[in-house]
């Protein structure tokens, strides 16, 4: 199975980290992975995105033009990437911040009120983990434990107290996806 994903949002919404955690978790599980960020002026406060591949096969192009999965954390991201998703693919969008509805009818669409759930849990900053949970709930490409191991690696030791909160956020996202 090859998952070709584009994760997009405002700079600061944590889409780059979300992508890295997926790649890292895949690597831990012995899968082939790549992570490719957008870079340049668009990174300075504008829309950022990364392309992530998690696969059983060696990764060909790390640049994704026809993703099987898109995560859109804000409206510009939805506008930019909705049309590129392969028929039968998956779109997860953050309906805490996106009022309009996607138009495609040939893909699976999952709205996630990521900021609302994150705020309920006590921190707006874990909205990305809620969405990551929703992604794993819909498409279980890696184990939650691998994501947590990746987070443990990515966060400096003095931030490890945040790990349980991140785990909760992922769980909430997974539960939402299963409803």
């Amino acid at each position: 199975m090859t998952h070709e994903m584009i994760l997009a949002g405002f700079g600061g919404q944590g889409v780059m980290l979300m992508g890295q955690m997926l790649a890292y978790a895949g690597m831990i599980e012995g899968k082939h992975v790549s992570w490719l960020p957008s870079y340049g002026p668009e990174m300075r406060g504008g829309t950022a995105n990364c392309a992530v591949v998690v696969s059983d096969q060696p990764v060909g192009s790390p640049l994704i033009t026809r993703p099987s999965i898109v995560v859109a954390m804000n409206l510009p991201s939805l506008d930019k990437f909705e049309g590129s998703i392969k028929p039968g693919g998956l779109l997860i969008y953050n309906n805490s911040l996106i009022a309009s509805k996607p138009e495609r009818d040939d893909i699976t669409i999952l709205p996630v009120p990521a900021n609302e759930i994150a705020n309920e849990l006590g921190s707006d900053r874990i909205a990305n983990m809620v969405v990551l949970g929703a992604l794993l709930g819909t498409t279980p490409m890696v184990e939650t434990q691998s994501i947590l191991a990746a987070l443990r690696h990515a966060l400096p030791p003095h931030r490890h107290n945040l790990l349980p909160l991140n785990e909760q956020a992922i769980k909430r996202g997974q539960e939402l996806a299963k409803q």
């Binding site: 890295q20 790649a23 690597m27 790549s34 992570w35 490719l36 960020p37 870079y39 990764v59 790390p62």
Partner: peptide, 10 residues
């Protein structure tokens, strides 16, 4: 190239 510099792989 820019892509080789920016991308992450194991």
């Amino acid at each position: 190239d820019g892509m080789m510099g920016q991308m992450m792989e194991p």
